[in-house]
Design a protein around this nucleic acid. Structure first.
Lengths: 347, 347
DNA sequence: AATGTAGGCGGAAACGTTTTGGGATGTCAA
DNA sequence: TTGACATCCCAAAACGTTTCCGCCTACATT
């Protein structure tokens, strides 16, 4: 079956009527509609999407860009798959489908995005892991493609995003540790070019200073947010002259590497050193001693993300009257054994 | 910028020439081409893919179907992301892009697939986790959509697939355990409707019988291939009157649940019970004692999968003259501590 | 009987692109 | 001067669909 034309010829009906019958339009005889649907079923006819979306100017598909580099794969854990469920729950209501666009490791994400946007196979895009200055944000803004981001950015002024409450996490982690007597608290973070890396450390700094603890740059450990980065962070921690009594991790997966290195060095986690993690990574759930960390529901995040996007698309805005606001996602502390001790005051 | 027409008008050139200039066709003046490219860049023009693929009848996109149910998310670990890298490496050579199609949890995968195929947004499909009787395979075969599968199936006779060497794994696992004196060996498997569940157990049966050990159906534990399933498998193991001395897991993630349940029961893994896992799951790498398991490179699997697919697409067949054969992927044993003991012979 | 109305249908335009066939111009050789 | 040929470009067709507009018929109303 080639197309609607052959179907119409076979039925001896005009193609316009066939189209209306298939799409549930009103002005078509029920008997005719029945025949059309039966014939379509019989021949396995389905409308060609290229023709359809050419005519209609929309594809009913939302794209989710992800990175498929080896490193990203190792670290992503099931972040994207988790968010996907929430997104689809929102999109299903509008009969929208979700497509994941994996950017190859060896390609510039911006070039890739440009190509995918050019394909017009999506009506809108979702990007994540935004940088403080992010060319993708500029690109999408200029191209007037509706989009939403996971993570804020300084680029392009005002755009729809959902972000995790890094500031709150750093603040609460510090508060918790300080309340237990810690005074020397290390923190890990990615490069300050990544928005997360900047905000996280700033919040940490403000909070310790509020408690009268001077900010010590040597306690800010800039490593990759990966298992390997955790290992290295522990290594650097051990090199410090005046060793901290606690460390805050920006990514839970780091805990795996960090634990390993610390165990090698004979440090007892939860006794000699307190560890607090951040963000949910299934692999890290099996650590001993159990990790105190800030958790979140990827599903719920996906829902918020989807709503934020749709609220910024003309065709769906009406459904989400107050969904246009950007959301800072709170995280919940799941206490574990890794920071379950108090430091006695020192002279 | 609306389209090629406006661009042509602005340049005072016909749209045909603009198209040829942009697509690198030969018969266009280099000066003209330069002007066109400059103008396109200036206005940010990119060809509408709907129009293009309507005309050309192809999209240069390959779809990879994945399941995004909560359960699938928990279990998939980074299987898909890993395979994706390998696929893209193959596809990049032909300027093909890869799209991941996540089937919503509450939708019939076959209906979803039908919808996505109907969209014609992909030239070919890749599916995974095929059943012994798989409607998706039938659907794709009938619709004459090129496709390849991870996992064999009895449906639709001859079609392109890549599969893991379940038989070899079960056989080698049994051999290894038998060599260490084990006579009562349990095995886990999904329902025998899943091809894997059937083949895995059959191979296990053949191998133990070859060693003169009678097949005992009560040692075949049918549970889900998940952490939860592992927990339950351990539970059932403990219920058995005559307890086995070894267990073969079909999926590494199960080991996490299994370990937990066994530890609760005070069973010493690698002393009282030998455990062998199968297939790589990053989360399971951090178990204590370390798990003996069969590993594989998801990247390499992706490459084989991509080649198998292209070898079965007319437009690319020539590039892979011997790629049309189906591949049974071997796995490599990574020895750990979980089965590092011998059973002394019993009277 | 004349008019109005609704249902049902066909014809044709439009979406944006690529591609084909052919036309115009210029150059070179005979 | 003519013809052959190459270069460059234009016009138009085609891809498959949806949707607008208007026509026809049947029926109800006056």
């Amino acid at each position: 079956m080639k197309g609607i034309r052959q179907l119409a010829e076979h039925l001896d009906i005009s193609i316009g009527t066939v189209s209306r019958a298939l799409n549930g339009k009103p002005d078509v005889n029920e008997e005719t509609r029945r025949r059309v649907l039966a014939a379509a079923e019989e021949f396995g006819y389905v409308a060609n999407q290229s023709g359809r979306s050419l005519r209609q100017g929309e594809t009913k598909v939302i794209g989710l860009m992800i990175e498929s580099s080896q490193e990203a794969v190792e670290n992503a854990d099931n972040f994207f798959l988790g968010v996907t469920s929430g997104l689809q729950h929102v999109f299903a209501r509008h009969k929208l489908d979700l497509l994941m666009l994996p950017c190859p490791a060896d390609e510039d994400p911006c070039e890739y995005l440009k190509r995918m946007v050019a394909r017009r196979v999506v009506d809108a895009m979702i990007i994540s892991n935004t940088q403080r200055v992010d060319r993708r944000v500029d690109l999408l803004s200029r191209a007037k493609i509706p989009f939403a981001a996971v993570g804020r950015s300084l680029s392009a002024g005002n755009f729809p995003w959902v972000d995790l409450d890094f500031e709150g996490v750093a603040e609460r982690a510090v508060e918790r540790l300080v309340a237990r007597g810690h005074r020397r608290i290390a923190i890990t973070a990615p490069s300050s070019e990544v928005n997360l890396g900047y905000v996280f450390v700033e919040s940490y700094r403000r909070t310790i200073e509020r408690h009268g603890i001077p900010f010590d740059p040597s306690l800010v450990i800039r490593v990759k947010s990966s298992e390997q980065g955790g290992y290295q962070a522990a290594h650097e921690l051990l090199q410090l002259g005046h060793r901290p009594t606690a460390v805050i991790l920006i990514y839970e997966l780091m805990a795996i590497g960090l634990y390993r290195r610390l165990m090698e060095a004979g440090i007892r986690i939860g006794r000699d050193l307190a560890v607090i993690g951040f963000r949910d990574a299934p692999r890290a759930r099996f650590l001993q001693p159990s990790l105190s960390c800030f958790r979140m529901s990827l599903y719920d995040l996906g829902i918020a993300l989807g709503q934020t996007l749709l609220a910024n698309m003309p065709a769906y805005r009406a459904f989400y009257p107050d969904g246009g606001r950007n959301i800072v996602w709170p995280l919940e502390l799941a206490p574990g054994q890794s920071d379950a001790f108090e430091v006695e005051a020192q002279a």
